[in-house]
Simulated scan of single mutants.
Amino acid sequence: MLSHQLLRNHAGIVLIGDYGTLRLLNEVVRDVNERSPLVRDKEGAFLVLAHDARKAYEQQREIIQPPEHFEEIGVRYGVAILWPVLLPQQRMLRESLAWIDHGKKHQAITYALEAVIEEALREDFGSREPAVTEAWQRLDPAHLGFFERLHTRGALFCSWTKSQRRQLLPSLLWSFHPLFGVGAGAYPFGPNEQVTPEDLAAWEGYEWPDPKL
């Protein structure tokens, strides 16, 4: 079973699971990464989700002891993932299943990941959750260069304050679209809550700042 803990400052979540669940996530993501025609860079950002799951169950990230008096829950393992990384990864996983033969274990772990994300978004963003969820669900990994756009968007996100992340994450997700910035009124955000091409260009070639987790 997957669960989560929120990171500080609307940064993302610690994705938590037992050994078997995280190993299944690793196996499914690796399989999808290898066979999906949507994944063009087989060593890219989507595969990082499998690496993160493996690092977690190999006890190289967070080790979460069971609560006092509830030892039957057992030890669980977690890994921190930022929102602008996890949300595109999940969309790649979900959309890829439409293109490849897959079994019930693929659907089971995909639904489990989606359920954790939905719960975490409601908890983290409150009244802003519908806007974040709409932008997340509209991410289309079939577009060329989908994950290549992650570098500048991740860097910009890490540079933001807590309040900026809450307000601007939907616009940041919309900016993954290849027509981002083309034409007035293309995105449903006002002038004070809009990520611009200039914002992203300023982070081209720069490392991501400390996200202050």
Rank of each mutant, 00 (worst) to 15 (best):
H69G: 15
F70W: 15
T21F: 10
A45Y: 15
R40M: 05
V29E: 03
V28H: 02
G20D: 11
L7T: 05
E68T: 11
K55Q: 13
D18Y: 08
R23L: 03
E62T: 15
D18E: 06
H10Y: 12
H51Q: 10
L38M: 08
Q60L: 13
Q59T: 10
N33V: 00
K55E: 14
P67Y: 13
A53P: 00
L24C: 08
I64H: 00
V29W: 08
F46R: 01
F70M: 15
E71H: 15
A56G: 02
I64E: 04
F70G: 14
N9M: 10
V14C: 11
V32A: 01
E58C: 13
I64G: 01
E34S: 08
L47I: 04
E72C: 10
Y57D: 00
R61V: 14
L38G: 03
Q59H: 14
Q65T: 14
L49Y: 05
V48S: 09
Y19T: 08
L38N: 07
L6I: 04
G17N: 00
H51M: 09
L47D: 00
R61Q: 10
I73D: 11
T21I: 05
L25K: 06
I16F: 03
I13K: 07
I63D: 03
E62R: 14
E68F: 13
R54I: 04
D52N: 11
D31T: 04
S36N: 04
L22C: 08
G12K: 02
A53N: 06
R35M: 09
N9Q: 05
G12S: 07
L6G: 04
